[in-house]
Design a protein around this nucleic acid. Structure first.
Length: 413
DNA sequence: TCTGGGGTCCTAGGACCC
DNA sequence: TCTGGGGTCCTAGGACCC
């Protein structure tokens, strides 16, 4: 048996936790650059604010009634860690699936109904974050149960075949975990509208139309688990940093400074994961939301002479890559830095044809990590990143990082 | 004026091997 | 007129997730 625990309206819940005057009020959280709505409190949903809509396109009369926040990932990441730590007390086997979701293996546990309720109570008491719990014999059904829990009292346990039959009967096919926009468009033309319809098709048909992933989904909907809990120790396959700028630009220096900053981020993440990259990709994009302007997008993949997470080396290659794809006379929106072909730091093999001897220490990177961890992010940066940060995001409605900085800690009078 | 970021897995097709 | 068979590896693109 699996449980899926999902934080309700997570980002909005985090913001409200520290500004309780917004409890019971419509609250939204915006994406980077205050672009789209990415989280909504129930009251905001009730006002008809949709997920993913650009904030500036929301009706002004509605905007006036809603409290908007810029996304504050420092806060959300810390709150997420608290929730996950609490969940880990319920079973040794957990998979942190996303910032606000966690799968738990409950095989061998009994009284699932009351155990699920205990989880909900303990999480809200210890962290202040409300969660919903779905329990079922497969991950796909646990997701489905979780969705149903949101419409009940926050808990849904699908233990018996009868309960599962009943649950899939009216469950919309497009809401199944693994059915995205494309399949949601296609399936109704075959008369498939519900999870029950999909699972009633012959397996061969599903294999043909939805390939191997559909086959797994089919078994899972029948209560046969075939997607295991992912191990939390696995190495990532790629690490990316990409961000839209606060404004469009054609200025090469601007782009280079942003590339250096994003590349710095990537190298930090690599070192944190104790990984080295063998391939570094740089991608440059104009604003696709403005089809009337001339568009240009290009990317370059650089095979590194030897696997590395050294900031100076990565930046050198990143800048060279950027130069090779930059074209003047376009207005750019975004640059992406993507490291792939990751291998463990300690298994790096040397290259016969590079003069790198493996002994040179990663001193600059290590010093930067040490100072930036101790004194706070951005204490020591490469000069090539620039000091103006012209590329930084718009975040006009940012709340303080209440739980991670002494200066921001909440005062109680 | 203003439209996110960071991941995963699978398949097809091309280049290459003997 | 007629031009093999059985592989591997890599990449791009498309689907999905939160």
């Amino acid at each position: 048996m699996f449980a899926l625990v999902d934080c309700n309206n997570f980002y909005a819940s985090c913001e409200r936790l520290f500004q309780p005057e917004f409890r019971g009020k419509p609250v939204v959280v915006l994406s980077n650059n205050d672009g789209c709505v990415i989280a909504r409190s129930q009251e905001a949903k009730d006002l008809g604010v949709h997920m993913g809509t650009p904030w500036h396109l929301v009706d002004a009369a509605i905007r006036d009634q809603v409290k908007a926040f810029s996304s504050n990932y420092t806060l959300y990441a810390d709150m997420s860690a608290r929730v996950m730590n609490n969940l880990a007390r319920f079973t040794p086997n957990v998979e942190i699936y996303s910032i606000d979701e966690c799968f738990l293996s409950l095989t061998g546990f009994s009284n699932l109904e009351s155990y699920g309720n205990q989880m909900r109570q303990q999480i809200i008491r210890n962290t202040g974050i409300p969660v919903s719990v779905g329990v079922a014999p497969s991950k796909t059904l646990a997701k489905l149960a979780n969705r149903m829990a949101k419409n009940f009292n926050g808990l849904c346990v699908l233990e018996t075949p009868e309960k599962i039959d009943l649950a899939v009967k009216d469950f919309k096919v497009e809401e199944i975990w693994g059915i995205g926009r494309q399949y949601a468009k296609k399936l109704p033309s075959f008369g498939i509208l519900t999870a029950h319809d999909l699972r009633s098709q012959p397996l061969e048909w599903v294999q043909e139309k939805l390939t191997i992933q559909g086959v797994r989904m089919w078994y899972e909907l029948h209560g046969k688990s075939c997607i295991q809990l992912a191990s939390m120790t696995e190495r990532k396959q790629g690490i990316r940093s990409s961000r839209s700028f606060g404004k469009l630009t054609g200025d090469y220096t601007f782009l280079e400074e942003a590339t250096v900053a994003y590349c710095t981020r990537v190298s930090e993440k690599l070192r944190k994961d104790k990984s080295c990259a063998t391939l570094l990709s740089i991608r440059l994009l104009t604003n696709i939301h403005r089809p009337e302007t001339t568009q240009y997008t290009n990317s370059v993949a650089i095979t590194l002479p030897h696997p590395t997470n050294n900031i100076l080396e990565l930046v050198k290659h990143a800048v060279r890559g950027l130069k090779s794809i930059f074209k003047p006379s376009y207005l750019y929106l975004k640059v992406e830095v993507y490291a792939t072909g990751l291998i463990p730091e300690r298994e790096v093999q040397l290259n016969l044809f590079s003069n790198y001897d493996g002994k040179r220490k990663n001193e600059v990177s290590e010093l930067m990590d040490r100072l930036n961890n101790y004194y706070g992010k951005g204490t020591l940066i490469l000069a090539a990143e620039g000091f103006e940060k012209k590329w930084s995001m718009r975040r006009n409605f940012l709340s303080p990082p209440y739980t991670t900085e002494w200066d921001a800690i909440l005062r109680v009078r």
